[in-house]
Write a protein that binds this DNA or RNA. Sequence first.
DNA 1: TTGTAGGCGTTATCAG
DNA 2: CTGATAACGCCTACAA
Lengths: 337, 337
Amino acid sequence: MKKAATIRDVAAHAGVSVSVVSRVLNGTGPVAPVKRAQVLDAIEELAYRPRAAARELSQGRSETIGLLLADLTNPFFARLADRVVAEARSRDLQILLMTTQEDPHLEGQALDTLLDRSVGGMIGTPTGHNTARWEKLAALDIPVVFVDRAVRELDSVDVVSIENVDSAAAATRHLLERGHTRIGIVSGPLDTTTGVERVQGYEQALREHGVERDDRLVRPAPFRGDRGAEVVAQMLALDDPPTGLVVANTAQVRVVLRMLAQARIAIPDDLSLVVFDDNPWTELIRPPLTAVRQPIDMLALHSVELVHARMRQKLPPAPRRVRVAAEFVERSSTARI
Amino acid sequence: MKKAATIRDVAAHAGVSVSVVSRVLNGTGPVAPVKRAQVLDAIEELAYRPRAAARELSQGRSETIGLLLADLTNPFFARLADRVVAEARSRDLQILLMTTQEDPHLEGQALDTLLDRSVGGMIGTPTGHNTARWEKLAALDIPVVFVDRAVRELDSVDVVSIENVDSAAAATRHLLERGHTRIGIVSGPLDTTTGVERVQGYEQALREHGVERDDRLVRPAPFRGDRGAEVVAQMLALDDPPTGLVVANTAQVRVVLRMLAQARIAIPDDLSLVVFDDNPWTELIRPPLTAVRQPIDMLALHSVELVHARMRQKLPPAPRRVRVAAEFVERSSTARI
DNA sequence: TTGTAGGCGTTATCAG
DNA sequence: CTGATAACGCCTACAA
């Protein structure tokens, strides 16, 4: 088993210098058509493949982009990863995957190692607690794109997300238009952009319909754990419990559903339900859930496209905020009051 | 913005040579306690982090392992990825993620780029069609571990999977013990080990109970597409349709469930159902599904541990086959006939 | 125990 | 157009 061919082997085999080979490889600089052909032949024959590490070392930057997601257990992030990988491949970018598990400490570690790898760019769902490190990446001229959510302090980085305000407003409006006035919302933590923006949309819809906001019906829940269930249970225990509920925290819909089932709350008879993110199983359960469908392929497409463009310096420096519309999918978990 | 410190900067700052720094970094070779402290200080002060690319180039191998999964859209693989990432982190290994989408062509591409990256190891779910390339990896002394499924031709690579035969037998037995004799099975393609082994388990259980195998009830389906649904529809259209069904192809349970719902087949009244892989939503749907639960964390643990050990040459050359038991979870989708 | 120097595979600069 | 040759940052004999 002889070791893999290097650029020098190719050069020798083709009877040219390494520079020529490098040039045909990267299309940088001129090469005589004849020699080009020879080089191509040699490459073919030796099954030569440039070593990524050497390339990185030499140019100080790589074609690898770090993907730092919260949690692959959440189908939303899993499908996002799937699409990001696909988009990356079509651009010859590699994906280095890490997860934060919504833990700032883990996020910190991940960012550090990403730094070592001198990745060419980053796509991530920030926990909101490592602003210094994120800034460092940016300071090192490593393009960063936040997807799904952002960090308010970091207003110089690109963000790709859905229209959170509009989506939440639409979900709430759907309930209002069906006669509900007692509408609860379980959002994400209020120090995340998704958390606050979705509550804003909810409030906006309420305002439109002249319904007063009741603090007891607006409850944030962390992304991890079962808090979402508790919070809903508390709402339901009120003297005047909600008749409609928006679960805007994707990570909590499962636990909420489980609690509702255990408590034998009939949907939509006892409670009308709209959830954020339309999973493959959302239509499988009984009743099929009305949901806000996030266009995950678009989120992935724009994220990858954005880092890619930045890596190629093909974009003006001003931070980009891409917001794509989400689709409202009406099924059977909501009913007229 | 000054550029990141290199090993030379550290050496200078600590008043030693680079080799000393390298030695304290990698614990290779002796270092005087005093100097070690100085070096550590310098590292701290300069916030030095070794460049992964340089290290790779110099030693010809990296601490990055390639993870080549079929499809992150399948919750089984998504959760597997999640655990693999976690296990990898605790061993300071990085994960380069790629997907095959069950497409041999994409798998081939992925393997090629993995080769360029000179990854230190690989964990993957092979499609079964790129044996040459897989062998090439092995020939290059890159440890390969197949997880979940294997390729029969490649019997020299490590494999981590559940006890497929036993699991399928248990699932089938469960049905038999409840009086079913007409039992269908939707397996994976028969050129995959999971596909054949689960059918073997099914047959074994049948044999135990003296039930004859009916070819029309044993139908493989590809991992992609909706074939599983068609195949079940065909079984159900028989003169003597099955009263029990095992969906052993994780990728097909969703479409089968959808079809069953549309056809208004009552479960378990019309049909008793056991599915492979216990997702978070398996207990959310109506009725909650009886399932074979794959211990995903164990699969991940062993896979990572195995590549890691091989990378460190800490294992005898003989290929390892780790098979972990799966758990049978009885819920409400199966009933006595 | 320490330091020097050569090599890892590419890219890039700069004379021919 | 082409070809030496110097980086790139780290590891590792080998010498001291």
